[in-house]
């Protein structure tokens, strides 16, 4: 799980162009939206594409993302349970 969390942090930084951020600066339980990393709705769409492309998880309802993208930890847990690749 720790490995997947590390991988997710790297992908989030790359995919969302968070160049000023280091992997070590993202806590496993930091909120990704709002007060945490401050991601926005466009980032949420980017993360939905990331789930599908890299882990074969297709979200049927984009609103599901709200729960899944709470933090790296929650996201990794969801991926672990639902990944198809």
């Amino acid at each position: 799980m720790a490995e997947l969390q590390q991988e997710l942090k790297e992908k989030i930084i790359e995919q969302l162009s968070l160049e000023d951020l280091e992997v070590s600066e993202i806590g496993d339980n930091d909120p990704l939206f709002g007060d945490g990393l401050g991601l926005d709705s466009i980032d949420a769409l980017e993360l939905i594409v990331l789930l599908e492309k890299d882990y074969g998880i297709k979200l049927k309802d984009p609103k599901e993302g709200k729960a899944i993208f709470q933090s790296v930890s929650v996201m990794a847990d969801y991926i672990e349970k639902n990944r198809t690749k």
């Binding site: 995919q15 162009s17 466009i42 769409l45 980017e46 594409v49 492309k53």
Partner: peptide, 13 residues
């Protein structure tokens, strides 16, 4: 490269 799949919104916008 992605065979017309997985297009991200940022680049489109």
């Amino acid at each position: 490269y992605n065979d017309e799949q997985f297009l991200t919104p940022t680049l489109f916008i």
